Every structure is written in structure tokens, then in C-alpha cells.
Amino acid sequence: MFKELSLARFAVSVFFAAVLVGCAVQPAAQSIPVTATLHGDAAHPAQTQGWVDTRLYFGLGLADQPEHGVSEQGWREFLDREVTPRFPDGLSVLDVYGQWQGKQQTSPERLRSKLLVIDYPDTAENRAKIEAIRAAWKKRTGDQSVLRVTQAAEVSF
């Protein structure tokens, strides 16, 4: 019986030793530090303070009338002329479906749309650039609005 107790204690000791060793060793994926790849570049900071994420929604035309409204080529021309020169460091564009109901409408319009996402330092100059983009689109299309959603953002490159 003494031998069985010693064997049981030994097995328990080995088990706890294995658990403790397992806790002390990190998996390979966790031991690699995660850092930004671009350092010292103001356009692509390792850490940020005072940046925002702005999303602009542009209606291209009625969803069930793709031959009318703004074409893909027309959108790219607008992007090249009005957006890229103001934010050359980077942006994202997504195709989205949207709905809009104007003040005088009784039902919403279903629209082909583009979602423009831009992250940038929150300065008066950059906010003015965003408003210039919105104004240019409304002038080009006659639309009443370009929806803007802006939130604080923590970015790293």
C-alpha cells in the first residue's frame, strides 16, 4: 500500500510539474512581438493620437436603373480629381447598396452607392478637405446630401 501511495503522489507531482512548465512556455505565435512595420512616417504612424475615421456615402443612381446616374468611370474620375489629391496617403472604397428618402418623398429610393473610408489626423485643414469633397459631389450630381460619419480612431501601420 505504501508503494501505491508513493506511486500516486509521484504521478500527481509529475502532472503538476507538467502543468507549471506548460504555463511558463508561451506558444510561438504569442512570442512574436506585434508592432507597426512603418516607423517615423507621419502618414503611416506606429501609434496615433487625434486621428479620426470618416465614412462618406455617395449615391450613384437608382439600383434598378444602372444605365442612369454615375458610371464606374465617372466615379473613378471624381475619385482621381477630388479625393485622391486631398488624401493621397490612402483610402478605401467599397461598393454598397443604400436607401435614401428625401424631404419631399413618400418612399425611399434604392441606390447603387460607394462608401469612401478615410483615416487621417483630425485637423481643421483635413475637415475642410472632407467638406470640399462632399460639396464637389453635390455640385456634380445635384444630390442633396453626402452622408458623413466621423469617429475617433486608433490606427497603426
Rank of each mutant, 00 (worst) to 15 (best):
L5N: 04
Q101R: 08
T123Q: 00
L60N: 13
G40D: 05
L147E: 02
V21A: 15
Q30H: 11
Q73L: 03
Q65M: 15
D143K: 04
V117Y: 03
D95K: 14
T35V: 11
F58A: 05
R55S: 09
L62I: 01
D143Y: 05
F16W: 15
N126F: 08
R112D: 10
S31G: 05
E82I: 08
R127T: 05
L147H: 04
L79F: 07
R86L: 15
V155G: 04
S31F: 05
S113R: 07
P88W: 07
Y97K: 03
V93A: 09
Q26R: 11
A17G: 09
E77N: 09
F15C: 10
V14G: 10
S92H: 12
D53V: 00
A11V: 09
Q26T: 11
H44V: 03
V149F: 04
F16P: 09
R81G: 00
T37R: 06
F15M: 11
F58P: 12
Q49I: 08
S13K: 14
E77V: 04
Q99M: 07
P88L: 05
S6R: 12
K138E: 02
P27G: 10
V19Y: 09
D143A: 09
G50C: 04
E154D: 03
S113W: 10
G142K: 00
Y57G: 00
T150P: 02
Y97P: 06
A36W: 10
E67D: 15
K103E: 03
L38R: 12
L147V: 06
V93E: 11
Q104L: 07
F157Q: 05
W51V: 00
A63C: 00
A128M: 06
P45R: 07
E154A: 02
F2K: 14
F78K: 00
A11Y: 08
A18K: 10
Y57E: 01
Q65R: 15
A17L: 13
Q151H: 02
P33L: 06
Q105D: 15
Q47N: 02
A8G: 11
N126P: 12
A46I: 00
A136M: 05
D95N: 14
T123L: 00
V21D: 13
K114Y: 08
K114S: 07
S107H: 13
F2T: 12
G61L: 04
L38N: 14
R148T: 00
E82T: 07
T150Q: 03
V146K: 01
F2L: 14
W75G: 02
Q47Y: 05
V149N: 04
D80R: 01
V70A: 07
G59A: 11
Q65D: 14
R134M: 06
F10I: 07
A11P: 10
S113E: 15
Q144P: 00
A46D: 02
L79K: 04
A18F: 13
Q30S: 11
K3H: 14
P45L: 09
V96E: 11
V117M: 07
P45K: 06
G74W: 08
E72Y: 10
T150Y: 01
D119E: 06
L79G: 04
D95H: 15
V70N: 03
D95G: 12
E109V: 02
V149R: 01
Q73M: 01
R76A: 01
R110K: 10
L115W: 13
A63F: 04
Q105M: 13
D89G: 08
W100G: 01
L94F: 12
W137E: 03
V146C: 04
R81T: 12
I118K: 05
E67W: 15
V14E: 11
S156N: 02
A43G: 13
S92E: 14
V155H: 03
R134K: 10
